[in-house]
Simulated scan of single mutants.
Amino acid sequence: MIKKSTDSAAKEQRKLDLCHQLISSNNYASQDEIRREMIRAGYTRIGQSSVSRLLKSLGVTKVRNAKGIKVYTLDQRHQARPAIENPLSSMVLGVEHNTHFVLILTIAGYARAIAKVLDLQNLPGILGIVAANSSVWVSPRRDYSVLHLYKHISRLLGHGDFRE
């Protein structure tokens, strides 16, 4: 009987972890959107009431995003915080660029730490840095230096997969 309750607790924790990950990395306007993602992840019998309970457990609230749409977000106490013992590469999900700027995608809550690290480097090719919750926008001084800046930042952050 103890094994069954332990398995149940572990399954519940996995659901909670998945819900946390979904809310941290996406913008959901409804519980049904979250439920559909959880179904895709293998929880085929999850109902709206279970999603509601998970959201309550995580302290999730709704806030208006930049587009004015109300979306679910984690309470600050439940969001990931940069940890000094983690290498930079573990905070960065990817580095991309186009002809105008470099975009760094981070784990939720890590963008400001990455922006600060870049700012402290005093790279002469950077005109400006803007950090959000999970992305950092880097503007080069000259358009032609975007690729060079992208490669430099990728190396610095431990992401050496150069897509040109």
Rank of each mutant, 00 (worst) to 15 (best):
H159R: 15
I23D: 00
G158I: 00
I129P: 06
I34R: 03
H20W: 12
L149C: 04
H20F: 00
Q79E: 03
N98M: 05
S154T: 01
H97V: 02
R35I: 04
I39K: 15
H78F: 08
L105A: 12
K3A: 09
A41V: 04
L74K: 01
Q48V: 07
Y110H: 13
V95A: 00
T106C: 14
L120S: 13
V117I: 13
A131G: 07
Q13V: 06
A10T: 01
Y28W: 09
R36Q: 15
K4W: 00
R155Y: 07
T61I: 09
S52M: 12
R163N: 10
N65V: 05
I114T: 03
K3P: 12
M1G: 15
R163G: 06
S89Q: 06
G59R: 04
P124S: 12
V130S: 12
S25Y: 12
G128C: 04
V138H: 02
K67D: 08
L103T: 05
S25P: 02
D143V: 02
E33F: 01
V102E: 02
V146W: 02
K70D: 09
I2N: 14
L16W: 05
S135N: 11
I69F: 02
S89W: 01
L58W: 04
D161Q: 11
D7A: 10
R142D: 06
L127G: 08
E33N: 07
R14F: 06
G68T: 03
G94M: 04
A29I: 00
Q21Y: 15
A108S: 12
L103Q: 08
R81F: 04
S49W: 08
I2L: 14
S52P: 03
A41H: 07
Q31P: 03
A10I: 00
Y144I: 06
S50Y: 05
I129W: 09
S134V: 00
Y150Q: 00
V138L: 01
I39E: 07
T106W: 06
E85Y: 01
E85N: 10
S25D: 14
T106N: 01
S139Q: 13
L120I: 08
I84S: 13
L22R: 12
P87Y: 03
M38G: 01
A113Q: 14
S52G: 07
S5V: 02
S8A: 14
S57L: 09
K70Q: 10
F101R: 15
S30P: 03
M38Y: 07
A83S: 15
S30R: 11
V60T: 06
S49Y: 10
E96F: 14
M1A: 15
S24W: 07
D32W: 09
S5Q: 14
V63M: 13
E33P: 02
V136E: 01
F101M: 14
H100I: 03
N27W: 08
K56D: 03
E33G: 15
L149G: 06
A83M: 14
L103E: 02
I153L: 07
N86L: 15
D32H: 14
V51W: 02
T73S: 08
L16N: 00
A115S: 14
L105D: 01
L16S: 07
A132Q: 10
H20Q: 08
Q13W: 03
A132S: 11
K11A: 08
V102C: 08
E164K: 12
I39S: 00
D161S: 13
K56F: 04
G160T: 05
Y144Q: 12
V60W: 04
D7P: 05
T99N: 11
